[in-house]
C-alpha cells in the first residue's frame, strides 16, 4: 500500500534541531578539545621530521600528514579517533527518544519516521564534519605558518579530498552507532557494543585476519604470482574493516608516488612495483591517484548506506510505545 506525503517533510527542522543540540552539548566541547589537541600534536611531531628531511620536496604540505613519526602516524590516529567521535555522537540518537518518552509525541506530528532518522544522521555527520574541518584547518594553518612555503593547488586538492574521505569514514561509524541506538533501548549497551566492535575491527582484526588467511590459504609457492595472490588475499580480508579501507585511501591520496595500495607491503618484502614505461617514484596526477582508490571510496560510502538502511528498516518496524 502506498503512503501519501513526502518522507522528507520535516527533515530540515529535525536536522536543525539535532545539530543545535549537538553543538551546544558538553560532548561537543570534549570532541573539539580532542580534535584541536590531536591536530596540534600531529603538526608538532611531523614538523620535527620534515625539518630533518629535504626542503626541496614538492609536496611539503602533504608530508605534514604522512611524516608524523613511526609511533603516531596521522592515518593511524584518524582511524582510531574518527570512529570514537562518531560513536560518541551516535550511540544514543534514537534510544534517548524512547527513554525521554518523546518519540511518540514527535512521531504524532505530521512527519514520517524517515525524516527523524535521516535528520539525526545528517546532523551527526554535519557535527563531525565541522569538527574535522576545524582540525584540518588547524593542521594546515599551523603547517603553513611553520614551513613558510605556499602550498600548490594539487596539494590542497589532495588534502581537501582527504578531508572528504575522512568524513565519509565517519559516516560509516555514525551509521553503525545509530544502528545500535535503534537496536538497544539502553544507551550504555549500545555504546558498549559499538565500542566493542570498533576495538575488534580496528585493533584485533588486522592481526587476526593475517593468521586467518595463513590458515585458510597456506602460503606455498614462491613465485611472484603466488606472492601477489597471497598479498591480495591478505588485503581482501583486511578490507572487511572500514579502517583498512580508509587507511588505503589516505595513504594513496597523500603520497602522489603511490601506485598501488600494495606498494608498502611489497616494499616491506624488499620488492618494488615496476610498471613498464614509468619512472619509479615519480608523482601521479591527482586523478590517477583517485582512480587507484576509487573502489575503496565506493566501499566506504556503500558501507555507510548499508548500515543506515539496516537501521532504517529496523526503526520503521519498531513499536513506538515503550
Amino acid at each position: 500500500m502506498q503512503r501519501e506525503g513526502s518522507p522528507w517533510r520535516g527533515l530540515g527542522v529535525v536536522t536543525q534541531k539535532e545539530l543545535s543540540d549537538h553543538l551546544s552539548s558538553a560532548r561537543m566541547l570534549v570532541i573539539q578539545l580532542l580534535v584541536v589537541v590531536t591536530g596540534v600534536v600531529i603538526v608538532l611531531v611531523s614538523l620535527q621530521q620534515i625539518r630533518d628531511i629535504t626542503a626541496e620536496d614538492p609536496f611539503l604540505l602533504l608530508r605534514v600528514f604522512t611524516r608524523s613519526g613511526e609511533q603516531l602516524s596521522f592515518v593511524f590516529v584518524m582511524t582510531l579517533l574518527v570512529p570514537l567521535l562518531a560513536i560518541g555522537l551516535g550511540f544514543d540518537l534514537v534510544n534517548s527518544e524512547h527513554n525521554q518518552r518523546t518519540l511518540s509525541r514527535i512521531l504524532s506530528q505530521p512527519i514520517y519516521r524517515d525524516a527523524l532518522l535521516f535528520g539525526k544522521f545528517l546532523a551527526g555527520l554535519a557535527t563531525i564534519a565541522i569538527s574535522l574541518t576545524a582540525m584540518w584547518m588547524v593542521v594546515i594553518g599551523l603547517a603553513l605558518s611553520a614551513l613558510g612555503v605556499p602550498p600548490n593547488g594539487e596539494e590542497l586538492a589532495r588534502a581537501a579530498l582527504m578531508l572528504v574521505v575522512t568524513i565519509a569514514y565517519a559516516g560509516v561509524w555514525l551509521a553503525l552507532a545509530m544502528l545500535f541506538s535503534v537496536l538497544f533501548r539502553s544507551p550504555a549497551t549500545a555504546a558498549l557494543c559499538a565500542l566493542g566492535l570498533w576495538l575488534f575491527v580496528s585493533i584485533l582484526w588486522p592481526l587476526l585476519s593475517g593468521h586467518l588467511v595463513n590458515v585458510l590459504f597456506p602460503p606455498s609457492a614462491t613465485t611472484a604470482d603466488a606472492l601477489l595472490n597471497s598479498l591480495s588475499m591478505h588485503q581482501a580480508f583486511r578490507r572487511l574493516s572500514p579502517g583498512a579501507l580508509f587507511a588505503e585511501i589516505v595513504t594513496v591520496l597523500l603520497d602522489p608516488a603511490m601506485r598501488s595500495t600494495q606498494q608498502s607491503q611489497l616494499a616491506a618484502m624488499g620488492l618494488a612495483l615496476v610498471e613498464p614505461g614509468s619512472i619509479p617514484g615519480a608523482p601521479l596526477p591527482l586523478l590517477e591517484s583517485v582512480l587507484i582508490i576509487w573502489p575503496q571510496m565506493v566501499g566506504l560510502i556503500g558501507g555507510s548506506i548499508v548500515l543506515f538502511v539496516i537501521g532504517y528498516v529496523v526503526f520503521q518496524r519498531q513499536e513506538v510505545r515503550a
Binding site: 503512503r3 543540540d21 525521554q100 518518552r101 509525541r105 504524532s108 505530521p110
Partner: peptide
C-alpha cells in the same frame, strides 16, 4: 491513517501516556 498518516497527524493532537519533552 495507514495511507495518509500525515493528513491525520496534522489535524489530531496526541498526548501520550506520561508524555516526555526534551529536558534540556
Amino acid at each position: 491513517p495507514v495511507r495518509e498518516p500525515l493528513q491525520v497527524k496534522r489535524r489530531v493532537g496526541y498526548l501520550p501516556d506520561a508524555v516526555g519533552f526534551y529536558d534540556h
